[in-house]
């Protein structure tokens, strides 16, 4: 009992450490908000005078704009193709999610529930594929997707690539989770005359909701956030995804930090919301397999 009291002896200290860490974590994000709402294209929160005092310097660090304005947001949405790019990203990410979840769930179920020749090799090959350097794949991917499959500048080209690239990690994660679902449930269902398909869709998938949510989240993020392959496969400006478009603002010759910040916020909001929504599943979905298996 004395230990129990000792556990709670320093909540203040814990809070101080946590608050300090949290502030450091979110400061860059607050800074982006500041620039986005400043209405200017500059990087600086406030310009330092010739001979700055400490107060001036503190002002330049405080994440709050001198003047609040929505100009950057309006500019980004109206002046550029930004809304089209967002639309492209949304289509690509949503279809990637659907396809990615389908591919990963079916494969993970087989790897978890069946014993078959090639099972170990298949799983190992998935693991090893995580080590493939992206740079090695890009030239061949371009040849396959654009020249052979003729899917350059199309949504499907990107969707197929993203959904496939996400498979290995998702399969490993899902397999770990499926392994923790007791096999007796299925056996009794088989006794009742249910087919594999019914078991898979009616029993396993609902039980694996946390892991599937996390799979969906990762597939969505893979489609929403990627920009290298997207810039490789999408050559027409109308077909850019949001990340490719965003790089325009702070590329080698442009420094429209205000537009970039506003654009970043617009791009990040959907995925952050999704992340927060899925958060409750994140811990169990990610680690259930490795803990119990």
């Amino acid at each position: 009992m004395s230990q129990k009291i000792k556990d709670e002896s320093s909540p203040v200290l814990i809070h101080i450490v946590l608050i300090a860490f949290t502030l450091m974590t979110i400061y860059p994000l607050l800074w982006v908000f500041t620039i986005a709402f400043s209405g200017k294209q500059s990087l600086a929160i406030s310009l330092l005078p010739e001979d700055p005092t400490t107060l001036d310097r503190v002002r330049a660090v405080l994440p709050f704009p001198e003047t609040v304005s929505l100009k950057n947001f309006i500019d980004v949405v109206t002046e550029q193709n930004f809304l089209i790019w967002m639309g492209n990203s949304a289509i690509v990410a949503l279809l990637t999610t659907i396809l990615g979840v389908f591919l990963s769930c079916t494969a993970a179920y087989a790897f978890s529930r069946f014993k078959f020749p090639g099972q170990r090799a298949g799983l190992m090959s998935f693991l090893v594929s995580q080590m493939f350097p992206g740079t090695l794949m890009m030239v061949p991917l371009y040849i396959i997707v654009v020249q052979w499959l003729n899917l350059g500048n199309t949504y499907w080209g990107l969707i197929l690539v993203y959904a496939t690239i996400a498979i290995p990690f998702c399969v490993w994660m899902l397999k770990g989770y499926f392994d923790t679902i007791p096999i007796e449930i299925e056996e009794s269902a088989i006794m009742d005359g249910a087919s594999r398909t019914v078991i898979f869709f009616r029993i396993i998938l609902p039980l694996a909701k946390p892991a599937i949510s996390v799979t969906a989240l990762f597939s969505f993020m893979a489609g929403w956030n990627e920009f290298i392959i997207a810039s490789l496969l999408m050559e027409e400006e109308k077909m850019y995804t949001a990340p490719v478009g965003l790089k325009f603002f702070v590329g080698e010759h442009a420094t429209q930090w205000g537009s970039f910040a506003a654009g970043s916020i617009i791009v990040s909001v959907p995925v952050v919301l999704l992340f927060m929504y899925t958060q409750k599943y994140l811990v169990s979905g990610l680690t259930a397999g490795s803990v119990k298996g």
């Binding site: 079916t106 090959s125 594929s129 396959i144 496939t164 498979i167």
Partner: peptide, 12 residues
């Protein structure tokens, strides 16, 4: 496993 495997073979 087939759908995932085909995808992996062709694109990875």
């Amino acid at each position: 496993t087939l759908p995932a495997m085909i995808g992996m073979l062709v694109l990875v």
